[in-house]
Write a protein that binds this DNA or RNA. Structure first.
Length: 500
RNA sequence: GGCGCAUUGGUGUAGUCGGCUAACACGCCGCCCUCUCAAGGCGGAGACCACGGGUUCGAGUCCCGUAUGCGCUACCA
C-alpha cells in the first residue's frame, strides 16, 4: 500500500512554526516511504479563514522546500460530501437528529464553561447517553424534520465498550465510550459539518494512510475512530507529535508570542530555509543514529522515523526582551553554521535577493563584478548569523553609503589623536603600493609604514578596519583592503581623518 | 470536575534487555590562535535524572503514589 499523508492546517493567521514542523514531518515521512504528501486547507470556519493566510501556508511550504503532490484540497469545497455522509449515518441508524435548541456559548470562557458543565452533570449523575432524542422513533424524527423543525445530527456512541488504537508515537491509547458524548456531526444551522466529521470524510476521500499531526488531537482521535467505524472504513495509522511550548511552558501561540511564532518571520529576518528546516526537525525528534545535528534534507529523509518523535513537549527558547535572543539561540547558531559552510553558489543568490529587496543590489554585481561580489560574500560570511547581516554590518563592502558604528569610532579612531595625521599619510602609502593591490602587498606597505613611524601595526590595522568598514570587527584587515580596492580604500582612509 | 499525556544541566536531546563516575549539541566562562571579531582547537562551570515510596545486590531506566505543566472535554478547528 502506498503511503499517503497530508498536512492539514487551518488558514487562520500566519503559518505557525509548530504547524510548519508538522508539515515537515509529514513530508519527510512521505518522501522516505516513497509515498505522497498532500496539502489540505481546512477552511471550514469561513469567518476566521482568510486567503492571505492560505497564501502564507503555501509560501511557507515552498520556502521550506516541501513540495506537495496532487492538487490542494480545500475542505470547504467538500461540505456537501461531509453532509451526505452524516445523513447516511442517520439513515442507517448510526446517528440521530437532535431537536434540542442550540445553546448559546460565549466564545471567551469556553474552557471554563465546559468544566462547569461537566461538574454539574456529574453531580446530577447524568450520563453521556441521556439525550432524549437518541432513541426517538424514526417515524417521529422524520416527521419533525419534514415539518421544518431545525435539528443537529449526532453520532450514536455505544453505551458500553472501549475505544482503542495504537499511536505510533504515544503507544496504546484507550478510552471508555462512557467518556465520549454523542458528538455533533452536523450543526442545526444549515446542517454544516463539524471538524471531526470533515477530517474523517476527507481523509477517507484522499486515501490517507497515516495521520501525523499535533498532540492536541490525541484524545479526539477516539471520536474520529468512531466515525470511521460508523462509516465502515478501516482507520489509518495515527502518529501524534508533542506540542511546542514557550519558555514559560505555555503553549506557543500566535496571539501571546507574536512574530517569533510565524514562519514568515524567519524568512523575512534572513534565515536560510535549509537551516531553519534543520532546526525545526530537531525540535521534538532526534535521529536514531544521533551523531550529528547538521543534516541535509536527504539525510533527514533517510534518518526520519516516527519512532524518533518524542512524547514530551519541546520548549522553543527565546527572550523577548533581549534583541540578541529574539529567537532560539540554537536556531540562530544553525543559521550561522549554514551561512558559513554552504556552497557559495547557493548562498550568493540569497544574498542577492536580500540586496534586491532593500535596494542595495547593483547590476554590476551580477555582471562585470560578479567574481568580486562572490569573493566578498565569501570573505565576510564567516561571522554572520543571518542573511540580513550582509546588508547590515556588511553594507560598507557593497556601498559607499554606510554608517560608522559609534563604539568602533571611539575605540579605534578617537582614542588615538595621532591618527588624524597618520591616516592620511597611510592613505598616501597605500595609494602608492606597487603592482597588484592585494592583501599581501597592502600588508607589506602598512607594516613598513608602521615601522617608519614607530607605531604598532595593530593601531593602524584597527583604525583602518573602522575607517574602511565602519565596524570594529570583521575579516582580516588586509583582505578588506584587497576587496575594497585601491581607490575606495584610500578615499576612506582619508575621509576617516575627519572623524577624529 | 473528568479523561489523557509528559517530567534528564538554562534550552534541544542521548541514555538498548536495570550496572553511570549520567553523554552530545546550543548557550555561558577560560586558554590557545591572532590585527579585531568570528571560526577552529583545548579545557571548565552547570543535572543528587520533578518529589516520595517500593521491587532489586544494584533504578534515570521497572511498579505505585504525589506535585507541576500541557492537551482534550464545544452545534471551535
Amino acid at each position: 500500500m502506498t503511503v499517503r499523508v497530508r498536512f492539514a492546517p487551518s488558514p487562520t493567521g500566519f503559518l505557525h512554526i509548530g504547524a510548519a514542523r508538522t508539515g515537515l514531518f509529514n513530508w519527510l515521512y512521505a518522501r522516505k516511504a516513497g509515498g505522497k504528501f498532500l496539502l489540505r486547507v481546512e477552511d471550514t470556519d469561513l469567518q476566521r479563514s482568510t486567503d492571505e493566510s492560505t497564501r502564507s501556508i503555501i509560501e511557507g511550504l515552498q520556502w521550506l522546500g516541501l513540495n506537495y503532490d496532487e492538487e490542494i484540497v480545500f475542505q470547504s469545497a467538500n461540505a456537501e460530501k461531509h453532509r451526505a455522509a452524516a445523513l447516511r449515518l442517520v439513515e442507517e441508524g448510526k446517528a440521530y437528529r437532535d431537536f434540542t435548541p442550540k445553546e448559546t456559548r460565549s466564545d471567551t470562557n469556553v474552557k471554563q464553561e465546559i468544566a462547569e458543565r461537566a461538574r454539574r452533570s456529574s453531580e446530577e449523575g447524568t450520563d453521556q447517553r441521556s439525550n432524549p432524542f437518541r432513541d426517538l422513533p424514526r417515524a417521529e424524527s422524520d416527521a419533525r424534520a419534514a415539518a421544518g423543525e431545525p435539528f443537529a445530527v449526532r453520532l450514536k456512541v455505544s453505551r458500553e465498550g472501549r475505544s482503542r488504537f495504537e499511536d505510533a508515537v504515544f503507544g496504546m491509547q484507550e478510552r471508555d465510550y462512557a467518556e465520549i458524548e454523542d458528538l455533533v456531526l452536523l450543526r442545526s444551522e444549515g446542517l454544516s459539518p463539524l471538524y471531526n466529521l470533515s477530517v474523517v470524510v476527507d481523509d477517507i476521500e484522499m486515501g490517507i494512510t497515516h495521520v501525523i499531526r499535533g498532540q492536541d488531537h490525541l484524545t479526539n482521535t477516539h471520536k474520529q475512530i468512531l466515525i470511521y467505524e460508523a462509516l465502515g472504513v478501516s482507520v489509518p495509522q495515527f502518529a501524534h507529535m508533542p506540542l511546542i511550548l514557550a519558555p514559560n511552558k505555555v503553549k506557543l501561540s500566535k496571539r501571546k508570542h507574536g512574530e517569533v511564532v510565524s514562519l514568515t518571520t524567519y524568512r523575512d529576518r534572513g534565515f536560510v530555509p535549509a537551516a531553519f528546516r534543520n532546526f525545526l526537525a530537531l525540535l521534538g525528534w532526534s535521529p536514531a543514529t544521533a551523531e550529528r545535528e547538521v543534516m541535509t534534507l536527504e539525510e533527514l529523509t533517510e534518518e526520519f522515523s516516527l519512532e524518533g518523535i518524542h512524547r514530551s513537549p519541546a520548549v522553543f527558547n527565546f527572550n523577548e526582551t533581549d534583541p540578541r535572543q529574539w529567537t532560539d539561540q540554537k536556531a540562530l547558531w544553525m543559521n550561522a553554521e549554514y551561512i558559513r559552510t554552504m556552497p557559495l553558489a547557493e548562498l550568493v543568490p540569497m544574498v542577492r535577493a536580500e540586496f534586491e529587496a532593500i535596494g542595495l543590489w547593483r547590476a554590476e554585481f551580477g555582471a562585470d563584478e560578479r567574481v568580486w561580489f562572490e569573493k566578498t560574500v565569501d570573505l565576510i560570511r564567516e561571522r554572520f548569523y543571518t542573511l540580513k547581516d550582509f546588508s547590515g554590518q556588511g553594507r560598507a563592502y557593497f556601498s559607499d553609503e554606510f554608517e560608522f558604528d559609534e563604539a568602533a569610532v571611539k575605540k579605534n579612531l578617537k582614542k588615538e589623536p595621532r591618527l588624524k595625521e597618520l591616516l592620511p599619510a597611510l592613505a598616501a602609502r597605500i595609494e602608492a603600493v606597487d603592482g597588484d593591490f592585494t592583501a599581501e602587498t597592502c600588508e607589506a606597505a602598512l607594516r613598513a609604514f608602521a615601522d617608519e613611524r614607530e607605531v604598532k601595526a595593530g593601531l593602524l590595522i584597527n583604525a583602518s578596519r573602522t575607517a574602511l568598514s565602519g565596524q570594529s570587527v570583521g575579516p582580516s584587515m588586509f583582505h578588506i583592503f584587497e576587496v575594497l580596492g585601491r581607490e575606495r580604500a584610500v578615499k576612506r582612509l582619508r575621509d576617516a581623518a575627519s572623524l577624529i
